[in-house]
Amino acid sequence: MNNIQNPKVSVIIPSYNHGDYIKEAIESVLVQDYTDFELIIVDDASSDQSVEVISTFHDPRIKFHKFIENKGAVETLNYGIKLSRGNYIALLNSDDSWEKGKLSAQVKILDEDPQIGIVFTNASFIDENNQILNKKDYPWADVFLQPNRESGEWLEKFFFELNCICHPSMLIRKELYSRHDLYNPGLRQLPDFSMWVNLFKYTNIRVLEEPFVRFRILSQDRNTSADTSINRTRNRNELYFIMHDFFDNVSDEIFIKGFQKHFRKSGLLSQEELLCERAFMYFNIQNEIAHIYKLIGIKKINDLMAIPKLKTVLEESYNFSDKEFFEITGSFSLFDYGEHPVVNTVIKSAKSGLRKNQFFFKLARKLYHKMFRQG
């Protein structure tokens, strides 16, 4: 039974210019077999027929709010979270939809296991005509099909391969937002990835294999976040912000479990040696965005060398002295990217077409178009 005043679940739909799809999104929530929810729809000053379509629904569980001026997707989602009254929060994009049984499957897990903070699901990718896209149609069609991992293993996955979690599939305990705060409005491209990096440091998660979300991919010419140099630059800058603080507040236990196989030194390590391993971790990336990690790694090592005790640990435990550091700073420019071979590889691959390990940036632009774009 639904408790309108005190629902267990708050479903939030941030709406923006999806008049062709918002009806399907809303209906997929209202027909869920789990009914103890409120549906909060926040429209971010859509310029199409979205508001008119939303206004045709008169279900008492719906709470509709509309902005007069466009505020952007992060502010829109945060506003919905602030309005929510449920213990659990779910998100649905205004051009996506759910399969029946999604909420009931996720609520059951959170109710039965207080150690799990978030439940995600797999998703089916669909096109503008609701046709399911397979890997032949869309190379990343299985990107959200992930095995369950412990916290350290998830962080290791994020550090080396970046985001692979379906944001609109989540059911999350609202208290986690209270602990970590809401989505960072200073991030436009990657606020969800930043959220997972921080939350996964202290909560357990579950990923369901069932594709309970129909995740729509719109054609490039309809993307408000197109493949532009501005968006690519912002994407890289936000990745720098996230990765710079990646290991902050990561316990030694979680760090060891997730990253030990990449350590430079084996055996039982001291606190100081673990700090060194965190800094050296940034030099393990070997792909088109390695220069971002290396920028961070150089700064981390430089900070360690400024502390006499840690400088001694670097020299004695890792045979890493001023000489080795100067070799790095002399071979890699912090500013002149154009002469760096890694960056030249990026430029070359961009001209030659899609490469496998570029998937994140292209997928992130798709996700941003759907969830974190501004008008």
Rank of each mutant, 00 (worst) to 15 (best):
N2K: 12
D43G: 04
F332S: 12
I132A: 10
P211F: 01
F320R: 10
D221E: 15
P147E: 11
N6L: 13
M243K: 14
T228P: 01
S50R: 12
E175H: 03
N302P: 00
I89H: 02
V9G: 01
S104V: 11
K362T: 07
E324F: 13
K294T: 13
F280I: 15
T228A: 02
I292S: 01
F212D: 05
N163R: 04
D245Q: 07
R206W: 00
P139V: 08
T224E: 14
F283L: 09
G338R: 12
R234T: 13
V213C: 01
I242D: 05
Q49G: 03
N17P: 07
N344E: 09
M1H: 15
A73P: 08
D227Q: 05
S333K: 05
F259Q: 00
L39Q: 12
D221V: 12
I132M: 11
E324R: 13
S50E: 15
Y34V: 00
R222A: 00
F120G: 06
Y293A: 15
I116D: 03
Q32V: 05
R216I: 02
K348Q: 15
E324L: 14
I54N: 08
P14Y: 07
I68V: 13
S331P: 02
V143R: 02
A105G: 04
S225W: 01
S104N: 08
W98T: 04
N122C: 10
K157S: 15
F255A: 08
S169D: 13
D137L: 00
E52L: 06
S10I: 10
R206H: 09
H244G: 14
I12R: 05
G258F: 02
L274R: 00
L39P: 13
T203N: 01
P168I: 05
N204R: 13
T233W: 03
N122I: 09
I116Q: 01
G297N: 02
C164F: 13
L91P: 02
K294Y: 14
F37D: 15
N231H: 11
G338T: 13
K261H: 15
D137Q: 01
K63C: 11
F361E: 12
F247Y: 13
Q220L: 14
N87K: 10
I254N: 08
S352Q: 11
S46P: 01
A364G: 03
P308F: 03
L295V: 03
G267E: 02
F212E: 06
V9A: 03
K102G: 12
S47L: 06
R365A: 04
S225N: 06
D59L: 06
C276K: 03
R222W: 00
R61N: 07
G80A: 11
F57D: 04
R355M: 09
V9T: 04
K366S: 00
K309I: 11
I172K: 04
P114A: 02
L92N: 00
R206M: 10
